[in-house]
Amino acid sequence: MLQNELQKQNASVTKTSLWGSLFGKMDVRAYTMVGALVLIWVLFGILDPTFLTARNLSNLFTQMSVTSILAIGMVLVIVAGHIDLSVGSIVGLTGGIAAILSNWMGLPPIIVIVGTLAAGAVLGLVQGWLVAYKMIPAFIVTLGGMMVFRGVLMGVTESMTIPVSDPVLAMLGNAYFAKGFGIIIAAIAIGLFIWSAIRKRRSRQKYGFEVASLGVDMIKIAVISLLIISFVLIMNNYKGIPFPIIFVIALAVIFYFLSTKTTFGRHIYAIGGNKEAARLSGINIHKKTMLIFLLSGLLSSIAAIVLTSRLASATITAGTMAEMDAIAACVIGGTSLMGGAGTVIGALIGALVMTSLDNGMSLMGLESFWQYVVKGSILVFAVWLDISNRRKGVK
């Protein structure tokens, strides 16, 4: 009897250990959102068979690109304990700048792109300076920026829509990579993931840390590889991988590395987790705060280039409410509005959830107000879940 009970306990411990090895280090909210995403896709796939077609999924990923780019920058801002309400207006203003430089001034595409990126970085830098060094709350600074930048856009464009006809700029938001390129990207991504897993395993063994069983690592590699291959095959089944998605992937990799593997990233999490402790430990809070707003402005200008290219024009309404979608994507993906917690991957999952809801409800022909109702409800639920988890942690 006692032996049977011990065997059951050992089996339970083994099962728990395996589960922890697979999922223990990941944010539970992220897995919840992945499950929700799967349910959303299955539901819309049943209600409208066109939802899961390669063409619609390709359009869905292209649609999510602007929100994803903004959310990547927004993660760092929120993790540091701030908020940026101006990103949508920066998208509109820098998109207008791009159109003016290209259409009205006839400048080469490279000058247009560099000028647009510089404008976004400067706008973010100015706001960051006001927040960091003049101690004006980020909510007020960026709320003012949201109105000022939108007003400037209306003034410089004279409230007109400015077309963009340059073929290079048009390609950035509408072109597709050749199908062979997608296969090469998939092979490189899988190879890098396997190399990273092996390197991490050897490093933990070298320094005497606990290492997951080889079988668990093999399962992780197999699952990730299957997802990469499936994505590429679905995209290739239509026209290939859209340009905007490559931008999203590249920026996600860069900012994932920046936030998790660099001193700068660790300092941002430290500032958001406990600002006073971060100050006492010698972190230059003013400089780091200014930099995160600069990066947010820079990413907003990249999103502006993609959006302007997709629309083939700059309008005074471009980027309207984009800041809310970016914030919602971050929060739904597990970023805490209290600061100190959040990931780039989670923000991308949140952006995909938001875009999937928009896309699915549009295919079903639902009134646009339902999109606001559903997304707003999910946002409130995500914040409530975050607060509940934090309270449990305190107890």
Rank of each mutant, 00 (worst) to 15 (best):
S377P: 00
I219Q: 09
I97V: 15
I194N: 02
T315K: 13
H286M: 09
I305N: 08
L280I: 06
A341W: 01
V306S: 05
S65R: 00
G73E: 10
F293R: 06
I69S: 03
S377C: 06
T308Q: 07
G191W: 03
P167M: 06
L348M: 02
G73Q: 08
L37V: 01
G208V: 05
A318I: 09
M135F: 06
I113A: 11
A212T: 07
G115S: 08
M26V: 12
L363K: 13
V75M: 05
V394M: 14
F149N: 12
T260I: 00
G95V: 04
A351G: 10
L192H: 04
T317P: 06
A187N: 04
A170D: 09
V394N: 08
L39R: 04
S336V: 00
K220M: 10
H286Q: 15
M324T: 02
T94V: 09
I229T: 14
I72Y: 08
G115M: 05
N59M: 08
F381D: 03
L18D: 11
G20D: 12
T317Q: 13
L311E: 13
N284T: 00
T53S: 15
A328P: 00
I100A: 05
T289M: 11
S21E: 14
L258D: 01
T355A: 04
A314L: 09
M147R: 05
L22C: 10
I387M: 06
G124M: 07
I136H: 02
A222F: 15
S377A: 13
V216P: 07
F149W: 15
M361P: 02
V383S: 02
I69W: 01
R29L: 10
A118Y: 02
K261A: 03
G346N: 04
I246W: 03
A98I: 00
L280P: 03
S196V: 00
S300P: 12
G365H: 05
I305A: 07
K25W: 03
G92H: 10
W195G: 01
S58N: 12
C330G: 03
M33V: 11
I162E: 11
D386Y: 08
V156D: 04
F247R: 02
V131F: 11
A178T: 08
P167S: 03
I221L: 15
L295D: 10
D84W: 09
F61E: 09
R202H: 12
I327N: 05
I224G: 11
I136P: 08
S225E: 04
L298A: 12
S336T: 12
A30V: 15
K206Q: 14
M361G: 03
A328L: 00
N274H: 12
A99T: 04
V112E: 10
F44D: 02
L169M: 11
A11D: 15
F264A: 07
K179A: 05
T260F: 07
